[in-house]
Simulated assay, not measured.
Amino acid sequence: MAVMTHAPARLEANYRNLSTDDQDRFDQLMERADHAGPHDYQPLMDALAVLTGISGEIRKCACSCTCPVIFDADNQDAHVIEYGDGYNLGRHQCPWCADQHRETA
């Protein structure tokens, strides 16, 4: 009897590595999640997890450098650019962008 182990969830994915169809699906799922009610939100995040291999609060980096990283917004090193007032999803920078573009004051 073979024992199957689950691969660990990925921490990041590259939006540009998704097929055009999967990019469209990702965008549509994110748009729906942004406006979803409490019963619909988690199934949409689950569908995004299947599509990207990432679990959690999935976001695409909203950095002005047009970073293609898809990541879990709950990552302690991610940075909130804008809270999603009136929506489910805010704008977040991935951990790399948050580190690289940190303002030096």
Rank of each mutant, 00 (worst) to 15 (best):
A2K: 09
V3R: 10
M4G: 08
M4L: 13
T5K: 12
H6A: 09
H6F: 12
H6W: 10
P8C: 02
P8D: 09
P8T: 08
P8F: 05
A9R: 08
R10L: 09
L11F: 15
L11Q: 13
E12C: 04
A13T: 03
A13Q: 08
A13M: 06
N14K: 07
N14W: 05
Y15G: 03
Y15K: 10
Y15E: 06
R16H: 13
L18E: 05
L18A: 07
L18M: 10
S19W: 02
T20V: 15
D21C: 05
D22R: 08
Q23Y: 02
F26Q: 02
F26T: 00
D27Y: 01
D27T: 05
Q28D: 14
M30G: 02
M30C: 09
M30A: 07
E31L: 10
R32W: 05
A33T: 01
D34Y: 01
D34F: 00
D34W: 00
H35C: 10
A36S: 11
G37H: 04
G37K: 04
H39G: 11
H39R: 15
Y41Q: 09
Q42E: 12
P43W: 05
P43I: 04
P43F: 06
L44T: 03
L44E: 05
M45E: 07
M45K: 05
A47F: 01
A47N: 07
L48W: 00
A49P: 01
A49G: 15
A49Q: 06
V50P: 00
L51C: 09
T52S: 03
T52V: 04
G53R: 04
G53T: 10
S55I: 15
G56E: 03
G56I: 02
G56R: 00
E57I: 08
I58Y: 02
I58A: 00
K60T: 04
K60R: 12
C61S: 08
A62Y: 02
C63R: 02
S64Q: 15
C65A: 06
T66I: 07
T66W: 08
T66G: 03
T66F: 06
C67A: 09
P68Q: 06
V69P: 02
V69L: 13
V69C: 11
I70D: 03
I70N: 00
I70W: 00
F71W: 03
D72L: 00
A73V: 03
A73Q: 05
D74I: 05
N75M: 07
N75K: 10
Q76I: 11
D77E: 12
A78L: 01
A78N: 01
H79T: 12
H79V: 08
H79S: 11
H79R: 14
V80F: 07
V80D: 09
V80A: 13
Y83F: 12
G84L: 01
G84F: 01
D85K: 14
D85F: 15
G86K: 00
Y87M: 13
Y87G: 03
N88V: 09
L89R: 07
G90M: 02
H92T: 09
H92M: 14
Q93Y: 12
P95E: 08
P95K: 07
P95G: 07
W96N: 12
W96F: 11
A98K: 05
A98Y: 01
A98Q: 06
D99Y: 13
D99M: 12
D99N: 10
Q100Y: 15
E103N: 12
T104Y: 14
T104L: 15
A105E: 15
A105G: 14
A105P: 13
A105L: 13
